[in-house]
């Protein structure tokens, strides 16, 4: 039976930038473990004959033609930014390069 530790739960919360109080962390650790148990139950089934499912709909190759459609007005776009400068989104000092 796979259970996850509170440290693992804390790590996952940090990756998702969730600031959880200790009580919330305890609760979510339990819920995550329950989810894993559910997956464990599914894993006990014989799926040798079942192809991997990438999508619930039996669809493939949904395409769009390569044709330009109007973009948003810049004023509208920048209105959503907390701060702007020189028609760009202004963000705080970045620590480190992009991944």
């Amino acid at each position: 039976m796979e259970r996850i530790s509170i440290d693992e739960a804390r790590h996952v919360a940090r990756l998702a930038r969730l600031d959880l109080a200790d009580g919330e962390l305890d609760k979510l650790t339990g819920e995550l473990s329950d989810l894993l148990e559910h997956v464990e139950a599914i894993r006990r089934l014989d799926t040798a004959e079942v192809p991997p499912t990438a999508h619930p709909l039996p669809l493939s190759n949904v395409f769009r033609p390569d044709e330009v459609r109007p973009s948003l007005e810049r004023a509208e776009v920048l209105a959503a930014a907390p701060a702007t400068e020189a028609d760009r989104f202004l963000v705080p000092r970045i620590l480190g390069e992009a991944p």
Binding site: R88, F89, V91, P92, I94
Partner: peptide
Amino acid sequence: EAGHSLVDY
């Protein structure tokens, strides 16, 4: 050393 950064999407 940058004070802030600007993003063009």
